[in-house]
């Protein structure tokens, strides 16, 4: 294993971790809104959330570039505060977060829809404000979905390539995540051993995430269903 491989692996882990951390809070809010509120524009919001899932990733990356490039107003403003995204690892994290968002929202929304609103009603009659109902009843019951969504999102972020490379390019040590590194190594003669290493890491991280989500999910589901974990 060469330092470049190790670098790409740790960068990928860092980028993916940040990606789920930034998409989780809005993901829960949007999932709750889509699951529980009926309003004009519901379809529009739903479509918007799903857009990164159906658009070519390159298009999503280009859209991010249009908004966050230093030439654009938003990007310029962020640049002046020193939090610019272009060609930085934070940009890679944002690209991964956007791509992981629909998967996250779908999983959480399904689990919110599975929570019996009559339990929330009962909690209200027992003296709980809406906020307390949320974190004492709804959130614990939705937890399996949040965990599943997070792990799914993490795996998606680990594999994100198209939007990332379009938005923040392929800079070693900054934006060269595992998929970008595999692509780069395939471009040079004698790159196959590094590619094999990276493929191996990719596969094991993906399988590990899947196994973890299964295990945690089953544990939480058992607890939520009222059986001792």
């Amino acid at each position: 294993m060469t330092p470049e491989i190790v670098e790409a692996v740790f960068l990928s882990l860092k980028v993916s971790l940040f990606a789920v951390l930034i998409s989780l809070p809005p993901g829960v809010v949007v999932a709750y809104i889509l699951a529980r509120w009926r309003f004009r524009g519901h379809m529009l919001l739903n479509g918007l959330v799903h857009l990164p899932l159906i658009l070519p990733p390159v298009v999503t990356g280009y859209a991010l570039l249009l908004v966050f490039s230093p030439a654009a107003p938003v990007g310029a403003a962020m640049e002046s505060f020193g939090i610019g995204l272009a060609f930085r690892w934070t940009g890679a994290a944002v690209a991964a977060a956007v791509m992981a968002f629909p998967l996250l929202v779908r999983a959480i929304r399904l689990s919110i829809e599975a929570v019996d609103p009559r339990l929330e009603e009962a909690a209200a009659t027992l003296g709980s404000s809406q906020v307390r109902v949320w974190y004492t009843v709804t959130l614990p019951l939705v937890l399996p979905g949040i965990i599943a969504g997070t792990i799914l999102g993490f795996a998606k972020a680990m594999g994100e390539f198209g939007a990332t490379i379009t938005f923040v390019s392929n800079i070693p040590g900054e934006t060269r995540t595992i998929p970008s590194a595999i692509y780069a190594f395939l471009q040079v003669p004698g790159g196959e051993p590094a590619v094999l290493w990276l493929v191996g890491v990719s596969v094991s991280v993906a399988l590990g995430a899947l196994a973890l989500s299964e295990w945690v999910g089953r544990r939480v589901a058992r607890r939520v269903a009222g059986r001792d974990a």
Binding site: D116, R118, L119, E121, A122, A123, V137, P140, L141, R223, V224, A225, G226
Partner: peptide, 8 residues
């Protein structure tokens, strides 16, 4: 009528 105990 249906109890509505918190399952968790």
């Amino acid at each position: 009528q249906d109890g509505r105990l918190f399952p968790h």
